[in-house]
Amino acid sequence: MPTYSASETLDLPVASSERAGLSTFLRGLRGRVVGFAASAVWLVFGLSCWWREDLGDWSRTNEVAIGALLIAGVLLAASIAGFWSERVGEIVRNRAPWLVLLGALFSVWEVATAKLGWLPLPFFPPPQAIVEVFTDDLPKLLDSVISSIKLQLGGYAIGAGLGFITGVSIGWSRAVGYWVHPLLRFIGPLPATAWLPIAFFAFPSSWSASTFLIALATGFPVTVLTWSGVASVSNAYYDVARTLGAKPSFLVFKVAIPAALPHVFVGLFMGLGASFAVLVVAEMMGVKSGLGWYLQWAQGWASYSNMYAALLVMSLLCSGAITLLFKVRDRLLIWQKGVVKW
């Protein structure tokens, strides 16, 4: 005897689909409410800029207010559009909670600095002061960015290239390992910045000295991880390739290196982090350009808003560089399962 009747089996889907419809509607409403809330919070931020006279002399208060109101307008439009376009609704739903938080933080920041002066000036400039840096000091900031990127790219490319070649050589050849390994153990763990005083008089220019230091900081982790990658390749792979007629060069380029690539990318990632630190220190100590130098210079003039602006740009650049590295890795290591998404 069946334990359910025909009518039950017919009722059930109807009821559950009704419930599902209701919960979908509620969920949809909640997503949209957050979108409207974000718009409202940004409206508050914009209005807070006009609430009363600035305590200091900042020229971009109006622009910040208008910008905030524009964002509030766009959010409002997008939230309304979300009723018709599922795609827009999805975009708003995913970003709205963060936008609410950001708008609230900006409002508090604006009021606590420019309007009420709860936080001491000039150490805590208001948002309009930082926007002012981006609009009025843009050429110098851009110069610094380009200079930093050039220095970083050159040093990183040299360090990564040499580190990779050294790592493969140590991993592959016992003789190379014998000579290079002690050197690596002795010099590698030394922080690259410790070389700074020597590097700046040993090299013809502060630029070449900094390139050397960045390359050193990058090269060590890349070497060690490439080496460990090559050393950990299973002998079975070499056996297979050899029985199929592979020559030593094939074993290096088509077996050892591809098998070691996941390790190599860990090394490249660590090297990137280490090289950022060296870049900034080198720019602060010797090179007369770049974001590190800009930071130093801004501090000298006690222009804290310039420092915050430079920090923001620096963080975007570093994050961008890592994103780029991970994109390259995802392309090359497409055969791997379950890699971390950055």
Partner: peptide, 30 residues
Amino acid sequence: PHPSRVVVFQDPTLFPWRTVWKNVALGLEA
């Protein structure tokens, strides 16, 4: 070793970074 004598091992030991086609092509490529 010579490709006239080829071994099939207990583990397939396919190269994980190569597609099936490129794994099969290994000997001819070598």
